[in-house]
Amino acid sequence: MASPTAELSHLPKTDGSANFAYGGYTITAAVNGPVEAQRRDENPFEALVDVNVRPAAGVGGTGERQLEAILQPALRHLIPVRNFPRCVIQVTLQVMETPENAYVNPKVMQPRLNLGIIPALLHAAILGLLTAAVPMKTVASATCLVITDADGSSVKVDPTPAEIDQARSVHVLGFTAGRDLLLAESEGSFSADEWATVLQTAEKVCCRSQEAGGDAEMGGYGAESENVQQFMRSVLEAKAAEGLHWR
């Protein structure tokens, strides 16, 4: 799979913006904040994190609302919301591109949860928040995994949409840089043991950056998947060096 690409601060009117592309998904994130909250959703003790997912075509429906409901608590945990009472931090995630699935006609597809898109949405949102200089407690990354065969031994990282369709169960797990579990969503039938394997694999994939030279012990799983936290660090470092060239 091609390595991730990103473009930062490409929208001039927002406080921070990022374009993140990986695994066939391209997401544009626009972040504004902290701005004044409307009276009806003002919270006197903490900031409201407003996540808005827009599909590539048409208007958002129940599927997008569910994605927002999954992403919102994850982002809320990353931002020190208590430092910005009566404020809103607005994150708009526009899906620009989704990988094509030759087996499914998108026009007749029922609205349903698309777990495969969550990692891309989360990464775009975090890059957007970081370019908007919104204070964060830590950074995070997520990954999508599927269990394909009946005995549950084979876990595949970063599946294609076709693989997700044929999989027995689909899982999305997110970890912070401090290796804490941030997000866990699963779909399909699986046993507790299988979930434990998935958890272990996902942690290895997300937190690989800390173990220097950890790739060797990675063994089979997801060796081809990119380390997104390392990638985020490198793009932001380049951006910071460009913005602070005078130092």
């Binding site: 601060s9 406080d15 921070g16 701005v35 200089a133 919104v134 910071a240 913005g243 602070l244 130092r247």
Partner: peptide, 9 residues
């Protein structure tokens, strides 16, 4: 920590 973009606080 030095940054060059974002909203003014």
């Amino acid at each position: 920590v030095e940054t060059s973009n974002g909203r003014y606080i």
